[in-house]
């Protein structure tokens, strides 16, 4: 395995990645796991471990939508999710030499995303259960330290149309601790199984079930008057 300090030898983006990216932008979202792609995750990972950065670019293209969504659901801020998603992929590149092929790649990647997001939330001192809503967490607030903050402009009527229920949900999610927030989103939104959640957040299956219990209980109370 190459020295991680000099693994980025191939700078170009492969043509296959560009084509998939165009399909992604046209709304043909991937289902993940590599089923509809010619090259499997395992093969791409092996190439990355040999320093093939074009292969890593393919992995980024394949999973950036899921990574971005997961972090966005946790942070509720486009610019922060953008930055943190990049941080997660960069950490993944650095950690790839240690990745063992028998593990599921996207579960491993989600673990990195979870850790990056968890550290960030902890630093922002998001309140845990029972605390008041943290009204500094707004979708339109841009973290001053954000390296880049590209965000597609949202039309005012679209923003108003989608915001009421979304805001209620985000307010409720924000009142969960990062630990409870992660498991409920991975279960209800990402559709992970218990063991996949446990691998992603670094706890036991029993702890996952217990956290789900409490997260659901709290959300039911907070959202009891909320209609879909």
């Amino acid at each position: 395995m190459n020295n991680p300090k000099s693994r980025a030898s191939n700078y170009s983006t492969s043509q296959s990645a560009r084509e998939r990216a165009k399909a992604e932008e046209a709304g043909q979202a991937s289902t993940g796991g590599g089923e509809e792609y010619e090259i499997s995750d395992a093969e791409l990972v092996a190439r990355c471990q040999d320093g093939d950065m074009a292969a890593f670019d393919d992995l980024v293209t394949r999973y950036r939508g899921k990574v971005y969504a997961m972090i966005l659901n946790m942070t509720h801020n486009d610019a922060d999710a953008w930055d943190l998603a990049q941080d997660a992929f960069i950490k993944a590149w650095k950690a790839l030499p240690k990745f063992e092929a028998r593990s599921n790649f996207y579960t491993w990647l989600y673990r990195i995303c979870h850790n990056v997001t968890y550290d960030w939330l902890r630093k922002k001192k998001i309140r845990s259960e029972g605390a008041e809503f943290d009204d500094t967490i707004r979708r339109d607030f841009i973290e001053p330290a954000a390296r880049t903050a590209p965000a597609e402009a949202i039309q005012p009527d679209e923003d108003a149309e989608r915001s009421e229920l979304r805001i209620r949900l985000e307010e409720a999610i924000d009142q969960l601790s990062p630990e409870h927030r992660a498991v409920i989103l991975l279960k209800e939104v990402e559709g992970f199984k218990y063991n996949e959640i446990a691998d992603s957040v670094g706890c036991s299956v029993g702890t996952v079930m217990s956290r789900l219990f409490y997260a659901r209980k709290k959300l039911q109370e907070l959202l009891k008057d909320t209609a879909p």
Binding site: E24, E25, A69, W93, V189
Partner: peptide, 25 residues
């Protein structure tokens, strides 16, 4: 509650400026 969450929060979102995103990484 699960249905409410899934109605607004997605498992996958289009990344703004995807080529630039990859380039920055």
């Amino acid at each position: 509650v699960g249905n409410l969450l899934r109605s607004e929060m997605k498992a996958e979102e289009a990344v703004p400026y995807p080529d630039f995103f990859n380039h920055q990484i």
